[in-house]
Amino acid sequence: MRPRLQDVADRAGVSMKTVSNVINGYVHVSEAMRAKVLAAIDEVGYEPNLSARNLARGRAGMIALVVPQLDMPYFASLSMHVLEAAEKQGWVVLIQQTRGDAEKERAVLAGRFGQRVDGIVFSPLRVGTDEIRQRRDRTPLVLLGERPVDGVADHVVIDNVAAADLAVSHLLDLGRRRVAMIGGPVGSTGTHRSEGYAAALTRRGIAVDPDLVVPVHSNRGEEGEAAMDAMLARLDTPPDAVFCMTDWVALGVIRSLHLHGLRVPDDVAVVGFDDIPYSTASTPTLTSISPDRAAVAREAVASLAAQQKGEHEPREIEVGFELVVRESTAGGAGLRRPAGR
Rank of each mutant, 00 (worst) to 15 (best):
V301R: 01
L251S: 15
R255K: 09
L262W: 12
E299H: 10
T287Y: 06
F273P: 00
A281N: 07
P265D: 05
A300K: 02
A306R: 08
V296C: 14
R255S: 14
V268N: 00
A300F: 06
T280W: 15
G261N: 07
S279G: 15
V253Q: 05
I276Q: 04
I276H: 13
E299F: 13
A294C: 08
A306Q: 06
D275R: 08
P284M: 09
A297P: 09
E299P: 06
D266C: 09
V270T: 01
G252D: 06
S303Y: 08
H258W: 11
S303M: 02
I254M: 14
T283W: 15
G261K: 09
T283V: 13
P277F: 06
I276A: 11
V301C: 02
S290Q: 11
S290I: 01
V301Y: 01
Y278P: 00
S282T: 15
D274K: 00
H258D: 12
A294M: 05
S288K: 01
S290E: 04
I276T: 13
I276G: 08
I289L: 00
V268I: 07
D275V: 04
V253W: 15
L259K: 07
V253T: 11
H258N: 07
R263T: 07
L257H: 06
A297C: 10
G252P: 11
S282R: 10
P284I: 12
L257Q: 04
V268P: 00
P291G: 02
S303V: 11
A294K: 14
V270Q: 00
L251H: 13
G272V: 08
L257E: 05
G261Y: 13
Y278F: 12
G272W: 14
A302N: 14
V264G: 10
V271M: 08
A302K: 12
V271P: 10
H260S: 13
L304M: 04
I254F: 03
D292T: 03
F273Q: 01
S256W: 10
I289R: 00
Y278L: 13
S303P: 09
D266W: 06
L251P: 03
S288T: 05
S282D: 06
A305T: 13
S256E: 04
L257S: 03
R298W: 07
D266S: 08
H260Q: 12
F273C: 02
R263E: 11
A306S: 10
V271Y: 13
R255D: 14
R293V: 11
I276P: 12
A281C: 05
D292M: 01
T283H: 13
R293D: 06
V301T: 03
A300N: 04
A297H: 04
S282Q: 06
L257A: 13
A294E: 03
T285Y: 13
S256F: 10
D274I: 01
K309Q: 11
V268M: 00
K309Y: 07
D274L: 00
Y278T: 09
R293C: 14
V296G: 01
D267Y: 08
D274R: 00
P291S: 04
G261C: 09
A269W: 07
K309R: 15
P284D: 10
V270G: 00
Q308Y: 03
K309T: 07
L259N: 03
G261H: 04
S290N: 09
S256N: 06
S282L: 15
T283L: 15
T287S: 12
V270I: 02
V264C: 05
G272F: 05
R293Y: 13
